[in-house]
Design a protein around this nucleic acid. Structure first.
Length: 409
DNA sequence: GTAAATGATTGCTC
DNA sequence: GAGCAATCATTTAC
């Protein structure tokens, strides 16, 4: 007699007294004992016993009863554990990774984050592009590692889930396992894996924060502006000495020209104003130098314009804050309003101021306003009026000619 | 190495 | 929020 026959016989041969076909307690005990010892047996032996149990005539009835009991238990368990709300910590991490350009679609996320970091620190200059690209490269590296690890976790999760599901399906033939229970098991597995993923996300966030803080620290290292930028700023400053407060548009224009940020332009003017005011004497030479330089530039421009018999019309298209004004001669100059001029207008302003400064002795002969034209009158409205008066009275060419006449050149 | 110059930051006022 | 004043931290010139 083979094992299966023996099993079948042992089960079918014993019936409950008075109830043929129903197993007695002893019988059930035997079955359970067989189930319990099934793992101690060899694979073939176990398979044979399993098969015998599956073929037992009582199996369907017993299985249904167990299914019913299990279903009630599962329902009560399921009822006890409601849908969990999303983990706020995980949401924070996800949001941060998205904002930093680590997760989500890559659309220059690195540079966007770098730009954001730069903006937070007061802006990025052109000479910082090396740092910028370094930041971007490192962020890309972090992003790659993150995605590789995430992929690995997801793959492992899927593999494990499939494996468990197969096991459960297999076991569902011998013990009652409902689809809902399988689903619950899958959820448990996913939760376990997502907690691992959270650790990965946390580590990634930390790495990004460290990178970012290093990037910002590096940016905090002061670097002097290049010579050209300083000259542009100084030119504007000294040509607007009466009111050295560039408008937002002017700041933007200056920032663009100097390849720095508007914030840096504001800083520069803040520093310059305070330092100039504190030590005017020290800056006098610088002021004269810029005034002379702009005067020469303006004169050159004017004389060229005069030779070509065409009026100097800088920015005649008219940017915000500047306007054209006809002069006593046939020359046209763009005059910046005192508070809200464009940079083009500022350059002309520089010409005017420098002409006034350089040709002080010319003016002193005609009206004796030289005292009123010193740089000391930085905040003097009277100073503004005097300058404006002289500016409106003389064309650059006329002023230059007077200057030449005075110097005998 | 040191002093001066300079860009950035901070706290305050208006 | 812009600007001032003081200060810090770094760069530059000597």
């Amino acid at each position: 007699m083979d094992e299966q026959t023996r099993l079948m016989h042992s089960h079918t041969g014993v019936g409950m007294a008075g109830h043929p076909g129903l197993p007695q307690k002893q019988d059930i005990g035997d079955i359970l004992q067989q189930i319990m010892t099934i793992t101690d047996q060899s694979l073939d032996e176990a398979q044979a016993r399993k098969h015998a149990l599956n073929c037992h005539r009582m199996k369907p009835a017993l299985f249904n009863v167990l299914c019913e009991i299990k279903e009630k238990t599962v329902l009560s368990i399921r009822g006890a554990q409601e849908e969990e709300p999303p983990d706020p910590q995980l949401m924070r991490l996800d949001n941060m990774l998205l904002a930093e350009g680590v997760s989500g679609p890559e659309k220059g996320g690195g540079s966007a984050a770098a730009a954001a970091a730069a903006a937070a620190s007061g802006g990025v200059g052109a000479d910082n592009s090396a740092e910028h690209s370094d930041y971007r490269a490192k962020l890309t590296q972090i992003r790659q590692i993150y995605h590789t690890e995430l992929e690995k976790y997801e793959q492992a999760c899927n593999e494990f889930t499939t494996h468990v599901m197969n096991l459960l399906r297999e076991q569902s033939r011998t013990r009652p396992i409902s689809p809902k229970e399988i689903e619950r098991m899958v959820n448990i597995i996913h939760r376990k894996f997502s907690s691992i993923q959270m650790q990965l996300k946390q580590s990634t966030c930390e790495a990004v924060m460290i990178l970012r803080s290093r990037f910002l620290d590096a940016r905090r290292k002061r670097r002097n502006f290049n010579k050209q930028a300083t000259e542009i700023l100084n030119e504007y400053f000294y040509s607007h000495l009466s009111n050295p407060y560039p408008s937002e548009e002017a700041k933007e224009e200056l920032a663009k020209k100097c390849a720095i940020t508007v914030a840096q332009v504001s800083n520069w003017f803040g520093n310059k104003r305070i330092r100039y005011k504190k030590n005017i004497g020290k800056f006098q030479e610088e002021a004269n130098m810029y005034a002379a330089r702009t005067a020469v530039n303006a004169a050159n421009a004017s004389s060229h314009g005069s030779q070509a018999n065409s009026p100097s019309t800088p920015n005649s298209a008219g940017s915000a804050g500047s306007f054209n004004m006809s002069n006593s001669g046939d020359l046209f100059m763009s005059v910046q309003s005192l508070n809200g001029d464009s940079y083009q207008g500022a350059q002309v302003g520089a010409n005017v101021q420098s002409q006034v400064d350089t040709l002080r002795h010319v003016i002193s002969q005609t009206g004796g306003y030289s005292e009123g034209l010193t740089a000391n009158q930085m905040y003097s409205p009277q100073g503004i009026n005097v300058r404006m008066f002289f500016f409106l009275s003389f064309s650059p060419y006329q002023l230059f000619q007077s200057h030449r006449a005075q110097n005998g050149t």
